[in-house]
């Protein structure tokens, strides 16, 4: 009986290893082929490179794929949007969760709809174009903030459920009110949920493609996702370069994942579970 158990366990463990192997294969294929010369990478085999072309490939991609510019663009847009999201959603959610009047109740339904329904992108683009919010960073930043506002506010609201109103009242007794009360007393309590909000919004802005392709297609404004897509359009069969480019643009999120895995997994999943 015990023996059967043991062999069962070994079977399950083998299955796990097999699944990991299969799921990891694509990533391995990209990395290993980004080290090969053009002919070797065109083969797309999983063998190690005969001749290592690391410096060559990556230097070429760095020069030709608009990488430094794209890093700058993506960082500016992502960082400013994340800061905006944290400040605007935490303050809004505080009022939305604490108050309970007809306006707020209606608002909760509107935000729920905003979470579910898609953007109507063409009128949005034209509207932004008319008020000079295309051809620069600001339009995208505002649109990122506006489109994630309902969900992130909702995530904050859930956290405020767990902060007692007694804290607000005690602070009010001490003479704090409004913004002062929020930023001095409440905001310092929000660090765990700020981390969640930052992780969720960072990932979705950094990796965005669907909005960027409408707003940031010009070479000056291209983000990482767009550069690799356009680079692929020109170098369709230079897989060594395309793969090196993919590695270069994914490096920051992968590095973050390696260092902060626990927090990233918890952050990305907790938002969904709460609802």
């Amino acid at each position: 009986m015990l023996k059967k158990r043991k062999s069962n366990r070994a079977g399950w463990e083998l299955l796990i290893l097999a699944i990991c192997f299969v799921v990891f294969l694509p990533t391995f294929m990209v990395v290993v082929n980004s080290f090969k010369d053009a002919a070797g990478a065109a083969d797309m085999s999983l063998s190690l490179p005969g001749v290592w072309h690391i410096a060559d490939n990556y230097a070429t991609v760095y020069r030709e794929a608009n990488i430094p510019r794209a890093y700058w663009n993506t960082s500016v847009v992502t960082v400013l949007s994340v800061i905006g999201i944290v400040l605007l959603c935490s303050t809004s959610a505080y009022v939305i969760q604490r108050r309970d009047d007809p306006i707020i109740r209606t608002l909760r339904y509107i935000l729920l709809a905003g979470m579910i329904l898609p953007l109507t992108i063409i009128p949005t683009f034209i509207f932004f174009h008319k008020i000079h919010l295309t051809g620069n960073y600001w339009g995208v930043i505002l649109l990122y903030i506006a489109s994630s506002y309902p969900f992130i506010s909702y995530v904050y609201s859930g956290f405020f459920d767990g902060i007692s109103k007694d804290i607000d009242e005690a602070a009010a007794m001490d003479g704090a009110k409004g913004a002062g009360l929020f930023f001095r007393v409440i905001f310092p309590l929000l660090m765990p949920i700020n981390a969640t909000a930052i992780i969720i919004s960072f990932m979705s802005f950094w990796n965005d493609f669907g909005i960027a392709i409408y707003f940031l297609s010009s070479p000056k404004l291209q983000t990482l996702g767009l550069t690799v897509y356009f680079f692929f359009g020109i170098h369709t069969s230079d897989w060594n370069y395309v793969f090196a480019d993919l590695v270069l643009i994914s490096l920051p999120v992968i590095a973050l994942y390696v260092v902060l895995q626990r927090y990233i997994v918890a952050g990305l999943t907790s938002g969904a579970v709460k609802s």
Binding site: T91, L107, P123, T124, L142, Y149
Partner: peptide
Amino acid sequence: QNYPYYLLLPGLLIFFCFFAYPSV
């Protein structure tokens, strides 16, 4: 006093002006 609308408004205005209005 504790939960004034001016804390709610900045975010809400951005949501309405740049998401809800153009989409609708």
